[in-house]
């Protein structure tokens, strides 16, 4: 049963990822990317990482994709305004991407099975466990992330404001 769920989510993720690349309208790309993110959130749930799935949906599907949509609306790209590459370049890109995928899969094919599954620790993804690890072992990086966000916010505002000439 869970195997079928895995296959379905994988198929959904890969298909909508392809549609991100091949759809002509950028708004459609954003919507397909949201579908991909929901499929990946489903994978997180399959991996017992419930909190991670929730954060993924909130941050990616909620915040980042809304940011993308706002920028697309602001730049008025909701129609096909994009000049396309020549067919030769498209073919070259497809061949290069396909060869890259073959090399990656081929190199990962012979990887050994991971040993010593720590099946007893099924609660690793629960919020209680994660909170303890995050606030005890990773306290300093957690605080540094807030400084990073402050810097990013200041940078975005600085870049986004109009020139005051």
């Amino acid at each position: 049963m869970t195997l079928y769920i895995f296959y379905f989510l994988s198929f959904l993720a890969v298909l909508s990822a392809f549609m991100v690349v091949y759809s002509k309208n950028p708004v459609h790309s954003v919507l397909y990317l949201i579908v991909t993110f929901f499929a990946i959130a489903g994978h997180y749930i399959l991996l017992n990482a419930q909190f991670l799935a929730a954060v993924h949906v909130i941050v990616y599907a909620g915040a980042i994709m809304v940011l993308f949509l706002y920028v697309i609306m602001m730049l008025n790209l909701n129609q096909e305004t994009e000049p396309h590459k020549s067919n030769y370049l498209k073919l070259a890109a497809t061949v290069a991407g396909g060869i890259f995928m073959i090399v990656l899969i081929g190199s990962l094919k012979g990887v050994e099975k991971i040993e010593n599954l720590n099946a007893a620790n099924q609660s690793a993804g629960l919020i209680k466990n994660l909170g303890q690890v995050l606030y005890r072992d990773y306290m300093l990086p957690f605080e540094m992330a807030s400084i990073l966000f402050l810097a990013a916010m200041v940078g975005a505002v600085m870049l986004g404001k109009n020139e005051l000439k």
Binding site: V14, A17, F18, V20, V21, P26, S29, F68, V71, I72, L75, L77, E82, P83, H84, K85, K90, A92, A93, T94, A96, G97, G98, F100, M101, L104
Partner: peptide, 15 residues
């Protein structure tokens, strides 16, 4: 790989 393909394939910066 699909991400790499998209970077190579498209010209729109947002995509």
């Amino acid at each position: 790989s699909i991400g790499v393909l998209g970077v190579l394939y498209r010209r729109n910066i947002i995509v």
